[in-house]
Amino acid sequence: MGKATQKHYLAMAGVVLSLCAGQSFAELKPVSDNDLSGVTGGTGLSIDLSSQISMGGMTFEDSGQAKVSNLNFGGAGLTTSGQSLGLGQRLDDLTIAFDISQAGALNIGFRPLSAAGTIDWGMSTGAIDLVSASGQTTRFADGLEAWGTLLSADFRIQTDTAVSQNPKQYSLAVFTLDDLDLISNSGGLSVGNLQITGTESGGILLGSQALTDFFGSAEGMTSSEVSTAVSGAENGFAVMSTSVGTEQVNNGASTSDLRTIRVNAMAADVNVGSMGVGGVDLGAATLDNLRVSDTTIRFNPY
């Protein structure tokens, strides 16, 4: 074997090894070209995850800057109120399933590892500042803490022969926000004990027929997603179905592709324990049976 050939094979081996590492979990079967037409595919892939992410800072820079310091993402124990309940700091008890359907749709599902449980999630930040181009800083808030639970989240990325089919990505989240606090020590905007729960967890109950009618008429939700949404709401969880993609929008003379987020359907009870601006207490607020549908947000850069 010549030296060049050896190198070539070694390089190939490296690629093969790295490919093997990625594929060893799938039930791969050797197939010949003739066999391929009869193949019905593998079983898909599951990942059980336990994770925590931290960042010293995040800056969004346009002309000025919005700066957030000390971001943490993980379990509910990252927040003061979640920790007092003995919840951990990691996002765990989570399994993520990846499947590609025969129709070529990529389905990604987030579920609790134990069938009866929920996934607790949490985040916290340090100070949030707005900085002008000349360096002047305004403190928007001293920190943000939020935690809640997730019963399920599903992402569906469609493939359809109709190229114009947009948006392509649909998601359905069944969740609660148990406590959000926007902390302002120096008299900015403050929010305390913001909660988002299901429509059936308090106040006037909608009932399963009204929930079925509401989600059933939502654009882009499959029948199984409607039943997931209804049973989630009945068990006290907020439900939100959204889709993301690009849409061609006619601006008079020209058309342009704009990124679009659609809220297909959302149903929740919202409670705000306390609100304040500049140190002045604005009191509490309750939104019972908040429902949003057919709402489109388009991002138009200028």
């Binding site: 995850l49 336990s50 994770s51 925590q52 992410i53 931290s54 960042m55 010293g56 800072g57 995040m58 800056t59 969004f60 820079e61």
Partner: peptide
């Protein structure tokens, strides 16, 4: 968007 001192454990 600038992310500074990102640390991921998974």
């Amino acid at each position: 968007v600038y992310l500074t001192d990102m640390k991921i454990n998974a």
